[in-house]
Write a protein that binds this DNA or RNA. Structure first.
Length: 287
DNA sequence: ATTGAGACCTGTCGGC
DNA sequence: TGCCGACAGGTCTCAA
């Protein structure tokens, strides 16, 4: 489920339930997700207050009153649910679903449940020092919707990289938050082939070519549109949204064999595999 | 240093 | 109906 727009929607869901609220009780229903929980995870959280609910790339980052920071990643299948405690307490509490792994009971009266069938998600609790030394977080590229992410920045990051352009877009050090769907969508919108070398959007000296400008604009457009669409719906899954509203479906993702949606293009969407991931593209209008 | 392949998990779907 | 393989929105590690 989760690329940047889905994580941002999750952040917006969690904020009213968690910001300014204290952890009254933390339940771990198993010992690990992708990795083991940090030592004394529940005890270190209990009694602390959430100062803010922020997002960096696909990570949810919650600074706490204790000085530590709760860092969470949804992996492939992670999701949060929020319930009011009154409802949770009324009648028989609903039995935990098979993959409800973590429950936060907040002083706001909200019960926040983390579900993750594939357990690729991560929860970590970092001291200030650990946070600033966290190689993955520190090494993340620019936020794609920030002003720092422009054609010059993207060209610099792609220069001299020989990997396919789409593979480069999935590298979180190049730009932070794109995933398979939105990388595919942005490349189609920009009219760029996923398989061209990443370095072709930059000059030999690393300056942006016009293709870099088109790609940056397309990335921002695709993400902005996805965020706006999800803010308008109660249910936050892009996939559920897609099936619920046919016209809002992706332009090319999972549309193998369909006509290319580009106006005037007679192409057909083809599926290929790059870096072990499905790519969808039109060979006529994406060069 | 960069790159590709495989690993980590469970669920679902299509084909036989 | 049931079994089996392919595939799924993401990292991470290891070897070349």
């Amino acid at each position: 489920m989760p690329e940047l727009p889905e994580v941002e929607a999750t952040r917006q869901l969690l904020e009213p339930a968690m910001r300014g609220a204290r952890f009254d009780r933390v339940l771990l229903r198993r010992a690990d997700l992708r990795r083991a929980f940090p030592p004394d995870f529940a005890a270190r959280l209990t009694g602390t207050t959430v100062d803010a609910v922020t997002r960096r790339a696909k990570y949810l980052v919650l600074p706490l009153s204790s000085g530590e920071t709760l860092v969470m990643h949804l992996g492939m299948s992670g999701d949060f649910g929020v319930q009011s405690r009154e409802r949770a307490a009324s009648a028989a509490p609903p039995p935990p679903r098979a993959h409800d792994h973590v429950v936060f009971e907040m002083s706001s009266g909200c019960v926040v449940t983390f579900t993750d069938p594939r357990r690729f998600g991560v929860m970590d609790l970092l001291t200030r020092e650990a946070l600033s030394a966290h190689e993955t977080l520190v090494g993340l590229g620019p936020e794609p919707l920030s002003p720092e992410f422009d054609a010059a920045a993207l060209a610099r990051a792609c220069a001299r990289r020989r990997v396919p352009l789409k593979v480069a877009l999935l590298d979180q050090r190049v730009v932070a938050g794109l995933g398979n769907i939105y990388a595919v969508e942005a490349l189609h919108l920009a009219g760029l082939s996923p398989s061209r070398r990443a370095s072709t959007i930059a000059t030999p000296t690393g300056k942006p070519r016009p293709t870099a400008m088109r790609l940056v604009a397309a990335i921002k457009k695709v993400l902005t549109t996805a965020i706006a669409r999800q803010s308008n719906t109660t249910y936050r899954s892009a996939f559920a949204e897609a099936t619920a509203d046919e016209s809002a479906r992706f332009r090319v993702y999972d549309r193998e064999g369909e006509a290319c949606p580009t106006r005037g293009c007679a192409g057909v969407i083809r599926r290929s595999v790059q870096g072990g991931r499905s790519t969808f593209a039109c060979r006529i209008c994406q060069r």
